[in-house]
Design a protein around this nucleic acid. Structure first.
Lengths: 210, 210
DNA sequence: GCCTTGAAATGACCGAGAGTCATTAAATGA
DNA sequence: TCATTTAATGACTCTCGGTCATTTCAAGGC
């Protein structure tokens, strides 16, 4: 059935187009100032059509943020394989996250906002959640590297890798939020951003070492 | 000039009343669903009056969150004095934060949201920011305890206490965000919240030890 | 007591923008 | 060629944040 498939594909493409347009609009005007009419105009579609693809504005924004997370994770794809010890890989991940935040500040902001959202998924099983994280988020990558580190004996084995991974991820996110969101505090502390990141990484790695 | 003073006092009181009403409305309906008309009705004032005391809805919300932070900090007032070593005090602070999150979930949610905001203070000097943090936020308390710990030789001295304090605070916040915001993930990891907090504290304290 | 003045409070009103839905257009396939 | 399903449209509604001309009230001078 080639036609059904093609239609499905086109639907996905259109969805993707809308996300790209929304990215554009959200990132330049900021989510609050951006209107659905803006997005529609950018996507060269009517506003009504947007609502065929996304339930509401928040839904669309979540899709944008999700795509930003994908981008971040893909930017780390090289790290997992390679022969380095786990701690080096973790450091590489941390550095890559920082680099990403610098080169894609808007994407990073979207990720931060998403992490702050309440989740109100309906009809999603616990197993689905786990699956999705392992597959799509940097946390999945973290889990695998931590497991490697634990089996190498370099990382403490008294804490489950999954929990360690989530904790590390949350903490990294929070530091980025701090550095880019509260530049005023940073300035009052007379600190440079790189310094803060390095110290942060140092603290994290220090904490999880076996 | 008793009258001027009384007027000033009444103005502060009214402001406080509005904040209480807003708390009520925001916490029960959620900030998005709560309207300024709701708050006005709860406060037994007209909507216009609200705008004599707060520039806009966000402003009012920030005031609510600020008052929540005050409450949290006051709940820690006993910890600083006392003869305990710094690490114990830090642990007490962490535990108190967790307890607060449990007993005042709405207040905690407000704090989390505030921490996620972009700051757009205008006409506030760097020095003001520093002052305000030292005085009004749990971070100020953290800084003083960390300084004690450093001088006791229990806490690493290679990182400025101020930075350590902010980092610890952000990380604690982020774990609370995680535990209360992503209950689904927690469930999928088959973990209890207390466990997560304990492990988190353990990691933090492990990381900063001299 | 009466009047002026300024501050505080009011609520009808406005504009923006999210979300809807009856209608139209296009594609499919019989 | 025509009926049917699917996609797209855009005019419309409705809610809500924010404003402002008007009113109320207290203070204090006379």
């Amino acid at each position: 059935m080639g036609i059904t498939e093609r239609k499905e594909r086109e639907k996905q493409q259109r969805r993707e187009e809308i996300i790209r347009a929304a990215e554009d609009v959200f990132f330049t005007k900021g989510i609050d100032l951006a209107t659905m009419d803006d997005v529609a105009e950018r996507a060269e579609l009517s506003k009504g059509t947007l609502y065929l693809y996304f339930r509401n504005k928040e839904d669309l924004y979540v899709a944008v943020a999700q795509s930003a997370i994908d981008l971040l994770r893909r930017s780390m794809d090289g790290i997992e394989d390679g022969p380095d010890p786990a701690l080096d890989k973790l450091q590489a991940m941390g550095r890559q996250t920082v680099r990403f935040a610098r080169s894609h500040p808007n994407h990073m902001k979207a990720i931060l906002l998403l992490e702050g959202f309440e989740v109100k998924q309906s009809g999603v099983t616990i197993h689905d959640v786990k699956e999705a994280i392992l597959r799509d988020s940097p946390v999945g990558l973290l889990i695998r590297i931590l497991e490697q580190g634990i089996s190498e004996g370099l990382i403490r084995r008294d804490i489950p890798a999954t929990l360690l991974a989530h904790t590390l991820w949350m903490q990294t996110i929070s530091v980025i939020r701090f550095v880019y969101g509260r530049a005023d505090i940073l300035e009052s502390l007379e600190l440079k951003t790189d310094q803060v990141f390095e110290i942060h990484l140092e603290l994290l790695l220090h904490g999880i070492r076996a």
